[in-house]
């Protein structure tokens, strides 16, 4: 099964209520949000209604919101090498 990866690149502000309704139905709330929808005729029709506002690509795997967020996160860049070295030393005194 394949999926549409839809990203809202232009805002829906100022569009007719019908167009804004389509955006809402697809789950596109604000600019640069990405949603994954199954490849079906109804979804294809919805995309056709808002084709000027979105970027669409067909992908094999849908991703959840959490996965997208995780992939955008940079490395922490540190790890704790030794816990609370001073306190432990004081404990043994």
């Amino acid at each position: 099964m394949t999926w549409f990866r839809i990203t809202l690149t232009r805002s829906g502000i100022g569009m007719p209520a019908k167009v804004q309704g389509v955006l809402k139905a697809l789950g596109l709330r604000k600019r640069m949000t990405t949603v994954y929808q199954p490849v079906t005729p109804s979804v294809a029709g919805q995309i056709m209604r808002i084709k000027e506002l979105v970027d669409v690509k067909e992908v094999d795997q849908p991703l959840t919101k959490e996965q997208i967020r995780a992939a955008r996160k940079p490395d922490p860049g540190y790890y704790v090498e030794r816990r609370n070295a001073g306190n432990r030393a004081r404990m043994y005194e």
């Binding site: 490395d75 704790v80 070295a85 001073g86």
Partner: peptide
């Protein structure tokens, strides 16, 4: 916690 030793690796 205060006293922890961090390794900065990036």
């Amino acid at each position: 916690q205060p006293g922890d030793i961090l390794r900065l690796n990036r």
